[in-house]
Simulated assay, not measured.
Amino acid sequence: MKWHDRRLLDLFEIEHPILQAPMAGVSSPQMAIAASEAGGLGSIAAAMLTPETLRSELQLVQQATGRSINLNFFAHKSPAADADREGRWRERLSPYYRELGLPPDASAGGPVRAPFNSAQCDVLLEYRPKVVSFHFGMPDSALVEKLKAARIIVISSATSAEEARWLEQQGCDAIIAQGAEAGGHRGMFLNDDIARQAGTMALVPQVVDAVKVPVIAAGGIGDGRGIAAALALGAAGVQIGTAFLLTPEAKTAPLHRAALKQADDNSTTLTNLFTGRPARSIVNRYIREVGPMNPDAPAFPLAAGASYPLRAASEPKGSSDFMPLWSGQAPTFAREMPTAALMARFVEETTAAVGRFR
């Protein structure tokens, strides 16, 4: 495939303008290595890693590939604790605690979702990955300046043209235009009204018109037809996540894999129940009975404090009732094949799709 728009290829030093999405808790170093070795840009989801585990994963990746890699972090502002709101949330979930035999004050445990900080930045400056990406805006400008001074490419996600313009002003080298169809958390940071988020087909050309840097389309793209459509809308490349969830390199839990195989275009919704921020998941019992959007859920990431114990108690029993089953609106594009083979399939399918328009 001869890609006519080489902006991302030259910027990231890759062969195909396809980014494997950094899906926290699901993607793996092995997935990132395979995606990069296949000519795309593999991504490490580092938002829930400590500096020590971040260093370990970077060592693993750099020992396995000399290709470009992306490290992804959250850039949210840590919220102040709200005892009243958290108390209401615990009370709302108390019937499930009793059902599962959990004490009302069961400890959350689970992964920590912290914003990008100086300790993580120091690790990146030590290893100098090609790309660092952010979700929920941008971190402190001093940290961004350190990354750029080290010649690390900085990109971030936008869910509107307004956010894209803001990111460009903050020094982003490329912008991911995340449509409403995307799985996982919304990258929104200037507006929290999910009812106003545009779909990928509407968002991408408006972002392309709003900024001068390359735009990466994300949301609902899972095969060559979607890639070709994104390029036709002016995107310089795409970011794909859900399609990788059934690969052997994915850390997708068995119950999550089973849900994906049964899901279709009508199976997902946006919910704030798991973490406090809107994220797209396959609908399960928890979402049906409590949400999908509940105003009592504490601010991100505090809602996880009460929801995680329910998952920890039910998942070992074979239940996905309280699991976040992250997925975009095209779960049927998830394919059971190695990451490298899937990347090759994307290129073949895009070639065929583009050929049909000639």
Rank of each mutant, 00 (worst) to 15 (best):
residue 54 L to R: 05
residue 55 R to L: 10
residue 49 L to W: 06
residue 80 A to L: 12
residue 48 M to I: 12
residue 51 P to G: 01
residue 79 P to W: 06
residue 70 N to W: 11
residue 59 Q to M: 10
residue 74 F to T: 00
residue 62 Q to M: 12
residue 75 A to W: 08
residue 52 E to W: 01
residue 53 T to N: 06
residue 53 T to S: 12
residue 78 S to A: 13
residue 81 A to G: 00
residue 45 A to G: 03
residue 54 L to S: 03
residue 64 A to M: 04
residue 80 A to V: 09
residue 52 E to T: 12
residue 50 T to V: 00
residue 65 T to M: 00
residue 74 F to Y: 14
residue 73 F to G: 05
residue 67 R to F: 02
residue 54 L to N: 05
residue 61 V to T: 05
residue 68 S to R: 13
residue 61 V to I: 15
residue 80 A to K: 15
residue 84 D to W: 14
residue 58 L to A: 02
residue 63 Q to F: 05
residue 72 N to T: 01
residue 57 E to I: 00
residue 50 T to Y: 03
residue 73 F to I: 00
residue 67 R to C: 12
residue 80 A to S: 15
residue 72 N to G: 03
residue 67 R to P: 03
residue 49 L to A: 07
residue 62 Q to W: 06
residue 65 T to F: 06
residue 49 L to D: 12
residue 55 R to A: 12
residue 61 V to C: 01
residue 49 L to S: 08
residue 47 A to R: 09
residue 72 N to R: 05
residue 73 F to Y: 11
residue 50 T to I: 00
residue 78 S to I: 10
residue 82 D to Q: 09
residue 68 S to E: 08
residue 49 L to E: 12
residue 74 F to E: 02
residue 69 I to D: 02
residue 58 L to H: 10
residue 77 K to V: 14
residue 68 S to C: 11
residue 49 L to G: 03
residue 78 S to M: 15
residue 77 K to D: 12
residue 47 A to E: 11
residue 68 S to W: 13
residue 55 R to F: 04
residue 76 H to L: 10
residue 56 S to Q: 14
residue 78 S to P: 11
residue 48 M to Q: 14
residue 82 D to N: 15
residue 58 L to N: 07
residue 79 P to S: 07
residue 84 D to V: 15
residue 82 D to G: 02
residue 73 F to S: 01
residue 55 R to Y: 06
residue 75 A to P: 03
residue 47 A to W: 04
residue 63 Q to S: 11
residue 61 V to A: 01
residue 59 Q to H: 10
residue 47 A to Y: 09
residue 59 Q to Y: 01
residue 60 L to S: 11
residue 47 A to D: 01
residue 84 D to E: 15
residue 70 N to M: 04
residue 68 S to A: 15
residue 47 A to V: 05
residue 66 G to T: 00
residue 48 M to R: 14
residue 47 A to I: 01
residue 66 G to P: 08
residue 77 K to T: 14
residue 65 T to C: 03
residue 48 M to N: 13
residue 50 T to N: 05
residue 79 P to G: 08
residue 60 L to Y: 09
residue 48 M to E: 14
residue 52 E to Q: 13
residue 77 K to G: 10
residue 68 S to H: 06
residue 78 S to H: 11
residue 81 A to Y: 13
residue 81 A to W: 10
residue 67 R to Q: 13
residue 52 E to H: 06
residue 73 F to D: 04
residue 82 D to C: 06
residue 51 P to I: 07
residue 48 M to V: 08
residue 72 N to K: 04
residue 56 S to N: 07
residue 47 A to F: 05
residue 72 N to W: 05
residue 50 T to R: 06
residue 83 A to K: 14
residue 50 T to E: 03
residue 48 M to G: 00
residue 58 L to G: 00
residue 81 A to R: 13
